[in-house]
Design a protein around this nucleic acid. Structure first.
Lengths: 257, 257
DNA sequence: TTGATCCTATCATAGGACGATTAGTCAAGC
DNA sequence: GCTTGACTAATCGTCCTATGATAGGATCAA
């Protein structure tokens, strides 16, 4: 069940190599070399290279056409929600400002997913979430399993939200969290401090307490960020507190009208 | 600036054809025919078919490998956030339950994007948003431009949120809204009823009133849904009101601890 | 200057060949 | 009987070469 497959196929190497190079800005906005040349530079055939380029094109990283060659699209057109793109971006420079965007995005989505999970989870799903937490808590003695277990735990919650879009995004954010967790989790005590929050989240969902679950999920996303924020100069305008909804939501009054 | 290019290339036809067929469930979970056969059935060469399959594989619709052939992955693995997948899904059956997921997702993301836009938009961006609204309001006499103008308007807001992820998602949700707008907008008066909300949203962001902007954006997403909800049997458990955050967010009290 | 025409670089697509991988089978051994 | 291991065949992985389609840019005439 754990997502481990990393088939080091030649194709994957080319896609990753090209994707990383583009995200890194090696070709910034300019055209790439012609296919034959590019293929030669990777030491692969032209067909294989074209398959790789087509994948990048499907992620809106490049456009390709006769006589115009293969051109890198402006950054704003990229499909940043694609897990591959997100991964390449995270391993390129500028990862820090991008990291804030990612945390902010998770602060928006994950609490709501937890909220819905608390309302909609079936009994089986509740049990699955608790089991996933138990497995996760065992990581105290098996730190190398933290990634997988954490992923399974959050995945279970997103699935329980009974919204296919949220489930899909949770699945994918999980992949990306690795990179970030990698940076934060090896701070001594990070796992231990996160554990009670995980437990609380599982309890909140079990108890069908949507507001509680939402609150816990929010703190759970924010915690590793705050671990980091101290050691970084956070631009004032990007304080993540902004994302917190106003204490008094005006929605309820007007939406029910 | 309007995204109109629809190059009816053979490659695109094959990708769309295969993608639609998979989403439609023609092969449900089972393996596809072998490459040679599949290529023949589309009347194209094996290379072209492989490029198409590789694109689908990059969207997590299928896995492909020697001896295992090309297998459709379980639905839960699909990258539902991919615009192509979303499009294929919307044109397949089951579009209705998926439509609820989409609205719910937008109810989560778009109000927050508006919230952040109100806080962070530069003067130029504010002006751009107002201009986009003006252009949109002209659609009263040019209904065929509604899609494009509406897209530009929302895109401007998402960009002003200064979060690359939100900007990217806005861009893509826009594509999908077309399909949905297509269903709702030809109800007489839908555009006219939406117009004041658009205006209010532009004003809220101009006034830097984040709470107001969030509230308006929420109603703006909900409106076309409610137009529909009346004519449909909405499963009780899926009432979209659930997504509304509790009046009293417990976050502020506990997070500062 | 402008406009149409032609040229050419580059991708689009086809088809065939061979190598690499592995699911599935089946026989040998405990 | 069950496990283990090698074997086989099917299928993708990768390469190559060739031809058609497209469109940018140059050329040339009005």
């Amino acid at each position: 069940m754990a997502r481990a497959e990393a088939p080091r196929t030649v194709f994957r190497q080319v896609v990753d190599g090209l994707g990383s190079a583009i995200l890194r800005g090696d070709y910034d906005e300019g055209p790439l070399p012609v296919e034959a040349e590019l293929a030669a530079s990777f030491g692969v055939g032209r067909n294989l290279l074209r398959e790789a380029v087509k994948v990048l094109a499907s992620k809106n990283l490049v456009v390709v056409g006769p006589k115009i060659g293969t051109r890198v699209l402006p950054r704003s057109e990229w499909n940043l929600l694609d897990p591959d793109v997100l991964l390449w971006l995270s391993e390129s420079e500028g990862a820090m400002t991008h990291s804030f965007d990612l945390v902010e995005f998770r602060l928006i989505v994950e609490p709501r997913a937890a909220h819905l999970a608390a309302l909609r989870a079936t009994d089986a799903e509740r049990q699955h979430i608790r089991a996933a937490f138990d497995a996760y808590s065992e990581c105290l003695t098996h730190p190398e399993l933290i990634f997988d277990r954490d992923f399974v735990f959050h995945q279970a919650i997103h699935t329980a939200s009974h919204n296919a879009l949220l489930a899909s995004i949770g699945w994918r954010l999980g992949t990306l969290m690795r990179k970030q967790v990698l940076t934060t989790t090896d701070y001594p005590g990070a796992f231990e401090r996160g554990l009670p929050l995980h437990k609380e989240l599982a309890e909140a969902i079990s108890a069908r307490d949507a507001a509680w679950a939402e609150d816990v999920a929010f703190r759970l996303v924010l915690m590793p960020y705050e671990d980091l924020a101290g050691r970084l100069d956070v631009p004032e305008a990007r304080r993540l507190g902004e994302v917190v909804s106003p204490k008094q939501s005006p929605r309820a009054a007007t939406a029910a009208d």
